[in-house]
Design a protein around this nucleic acid. Structure first.
Lengths: 250, 250
DNA sequence: CGAGAGTTTGACCGTTTTCAATGCATGTGG
DNA sequence: CCACATGCATTGAAAACGGTCAAACTCTCG
């Protein structure tokens, strides 16, 4: 299947891995929907609709701000960063998306992506044509509910991101959250590999990269952290959670 | 019709105005849906589902964080403020909702409201049972699309709120945006009445109330503003937009 | 008129940013 | 193999932006 190729970067590249028939178990939909009254036939319909894309290479765009919106995507493997660019050209990182998480939902409003998405490492995605998944959602209540839930979750995420909290609490919350999300995907707990440079973490948390660096040091001195480059151990998750407390949304 | 009454405050109070048969024209749904392929019968179904509630008196809660989620609501008249409370008890204002705007969409994820909503002035709402509107949305593609769009919009709003910008740009953007939204509802442009105290504006923008006060002065001295209490004239909208530029999300 | 909430103003303080330099990997070509 | 370039991370010193504290002021309402 051929897809539109933009100058310099091919996007939504069709996957050439042959396992398109096996529904991917990490996907945000399959697990949630099975528990929510989506029956086998509905799952098959959803499966018909999935398009495995990737691998994306580090730095490769998944979509760009302004692109016409056609599909949402679930990260299947790797990490995807999304960010906006304001009128001054300043960037604002919106999120780091791990396997099982959905990107593109904010594009529905204007039928254009309001942000950019780029793979931070080797990444694989499951692409869902939005018009088609919307039609399916009308037939399958469990899927509709799941879509609503995913969008609602993104609202909550962005709202928490907008919160005003001390820098150390924000970083602690970020690391703790990342650890939890990775653990939920089966990665070893208390140990995270950061797919992104410090500057991206800083931007995401509205901090200067230098501040993040200093905070890493302070957390390390406090015994909450052991960082060697992008490999970070979190030997005291409860302590980290305590520090993150002010930034935890309720 | 009787509704649950919580300690101290009656919520979702049934309206006693007799115009429940006339579909309210400011509502976020009617206008958008009419243009999107929702036919008369679908509109009638939607209408069957609406419940006019209010008036809420200033300070009266529409819902509280932790309440079980049953319905979303469109502001029909007045202004509603929503805010979260973090674990430290600190509040974070999430938005000010004008007539035609929807509240409650962030509650879908956990089937509990994650935030509080309170009327800032005399307010009237249209309440939509969420389970019922979801069922209707499955039958009426235009309605489903509209719900997706509204949720997507909330994601975008929260993402912009999370942006990192100078205090003056944020305030300018806030006032400019408020002016636009009011103008869109037929209020005279270049003139806004703030339903909320300075402290709420400050909190919303992650600033101290004193900073907001000083910024009002600076904007006034710059000729971008004329404030007498909560009545604000915006004699130079383009200038305001220019100042707001850094905070405008593309 | 007085009470009380909300707003404004001033002085000072502190966290985070900015600027600048250094350190530390990794990779490349001589 | 070494010299050097490049990108990212770290560290230090100074500055700035916005916050905090405290007091005065304004307005509304009883």
């Amino acid at each position: 299947m051929t897809r539109v190729v933009y100058p310099a970067v091919a996007r939504w590249r069709a996957a050439d891995d042959g396992d398109a028939t096996r529904f991917c178990s990490t996907c945000a939909f399959s697990s949630a929907c099975l528990g929510q009254g989506m029956d086998k036939s509905a799952l098959r319909d959803l499966h018909m609709l999935v398009e495995h894309v990737g691998p994306f290479t580090p730095g490769q765009h998944v979509f760009r701000a302004g692109d016409p919106f056609e599909a949402i995507a679930a990260v299947r493997e790797g990490t995807v960063k999304t960010w906006r660019v304001d009128r001054e050209g300043r960037e604002q990182v919106l999120g780091f998306h791990l396997p099982g998480e959905i990107i593109g939902l904010s594009a529905i409003e204007n039928e254009r992506y309001p942000c950019n998405a780029v793979a931070l490492d080797e990444a694989q995605l499951c692409r869902f044509s939005f018009p088609r998944i919307a039609v399916l959602a009308a037939r399958v209540p469990g899927l509709q509910k799941e879509l609503f839930r995913l969008m609602s979750r993104d609202i909550g995420h962005a709202e928490r991101l907008a919160g005003d909290h001390p820098a150390d609490a924000r970083l602690a919350a970020f690391l703790h959250d990342l650890g939890e999300r990775l653990a939920r995907r089966g990665f070893p707990p208390g140990r995270v590999h950061l797919a992104m440079p410090r500057a991206d973490i800083a931007n995401y948390l509205r901090l200067a990269p230098e501040t993040v660096s200093r905070l890493f040091r302070r957390l390390q001195d406090a015994g909450l952290l052991r960082a060697r480059g992008r490999d970070v151990e979190l030997p005291d998750l409860p302590g980290l959670a305590r520090l993150a407390e002010p930034a935890l949304g309720n």
